[in-house]
Design a protein around this nucleic acid. Structure first.
Lengths: 230, 230
DNA sequence: TTGCGATGGATTGTATACAATAATAGCCTC
DNA sequence: GAGGCTATTATTGTATACAATCCATCGCAA
């Protein structure tokens, strides 16, 4: 239904999506070099297409292009990390509010499926996949709110959050946030917009509190930190 | 200071900016075809660069790329128009609040200069330039708020607003919104964050009220409307 | 006149070739 | 052996050539 890949439509999109998914699932780590020839060979396209995909990703700040040096998976600074979550705090609660009002039974079923998949992934030990699904949950809510423009912004922020989590997550422990998602789902199902808004707000606060945003991490502040026993 | 154009840095950015400015100033109208060869000849670059610029603009939704048909200046639908201003209503008031707290004397001077330039442009009958400067005013406030992520979103929304105004502005009359900008400037100077927030909110409401968002306008709903006496 | 189909021209999509720049390795000097 | 300079290699930036697609014109028949 989603179209077989052999069709003539723009393959740059496919490459960009492939790379984005890999980033979401933490298979590509922040700072990693994205060689144009290599990527092209992997996806079976020429550098022209790869270049287009990388530019696209750089526009949503998943990738940083350094002139004449190439493309790298972005390494959001502590400051950027804060900004991303402040933006999310500004957008997502109100969006959850709108979503609660418009939620249909079909949406609920879809979201429930999402959460189930997420659990399955965690049980299977596939943390990358679990993380991606967790992000998708937020994107789904934005979609339900039926405001494409805001949803697009949230999509970008969720994607960048994935990089931020890769860099600044405190514990190795998997996503323990399923409870928050469950509670949100309940509020949406009850169409309790105010509760959904509050839950989203505190969910985001919780998320940030699980990050360690004290260290610069862009450049190690000391040699010992950079080379010492990890 | 800003680098002479002959340097080796990516010229795609220059082309994109050139086109964006033309769109902001309403020299390029919604729906207009952007032929790759033509644009390339105008800016003195090859299609490769033009293509990159067009993709960039399409990502911020100033341009729509139809596969195998080419790039066109975007024609936001009524629905998109509403969404853009709802997003602005969500982001900009709080941003004005933050900006008011952080405003410095230097910022005030800069904004005042902006407003003056705007007036000068209006007096000179250069509505396009006035409109662009009016948008820049909003961007400046976002910059002062010192949240690059949100500022980038606002930048996009302001740019799209320019297209929306081109399509749905009720009167021929020029921007009569200078008063709102003046009032905002005063609030910022007084560092009265709450007032700045309220002023921004009502300013945006006023802006929307000056738009005619009742008609589809994507396709004229009747022949009479399309061909009748204008 | 109206509708359909074919042909030619123009425009976009993609790959590739070449030029420019940065990274690497080797050599020489001290 | 350490440090710096040069040459080589690898990678990116840009232009161009070719293929695929679309659009317009024309012709023809009903």
């Amino acid at each position: 239904m989603t179209g077989i890949g052999k069709t003539t439509r723009q393959r740059g999109r496919d490459v960009a999506e492939g790379l984005a998914t890999a980033i979401h699932e933490h298979r590509l780590s922040p700072g990693m070099k994205l060689n144009e020839d290599e990527v092209g060979e992997i996806f079976g396209v020429s550098r022209t297409i790869v270049r287009s995909a990388l530019q696209s990703l750089s526009h949503e700040q998943l990738v940083v292009i350094e002139p004449n040096r190439g493309a790298f998976v972005a390494r959001p600074s502590v400051r950027e990390a804060r900004e991303v979550f402040e933006a999310r705090a500004l957008l997502e609660p109100r969006t959850a509010h709108s979503a609660a009002i418009r939620t249909t039974a079909r949406d609920i079923a879809l979201l429930r499926g999402h959460i189930d998949e997420e659990h399955a992934a965690i049980d299977a030990g596939d943390h990358g996949r679990a993380l991606r699904l967790s992000g998708d949950f937020h994107n789904e809510i934005a979609r339900i709110a039926n405001q494409a423009t805001i949803a697009a912004f949230i999509g970008q922020l969720v994607a960048r959050s994935s990089l931020i989590i890769a860099l600044y997550w405190r514990r190795r422990q998997a996503t323990c946030e399923s409870h928050a998602h469950h509670a949100l789902l309940d509020a949406l199902e009850a169409q309790d917009a105010d509760r959904a808004e509050d839950l989203m707000k505190s969910h985001l606060v919780d998320l940030v509190s699980l990050l360690d945003l004290t260290e610069p991490a862009d450049a190690p502040s000391s040699l010992k930190e950079a080379l010492g026993p990890r």
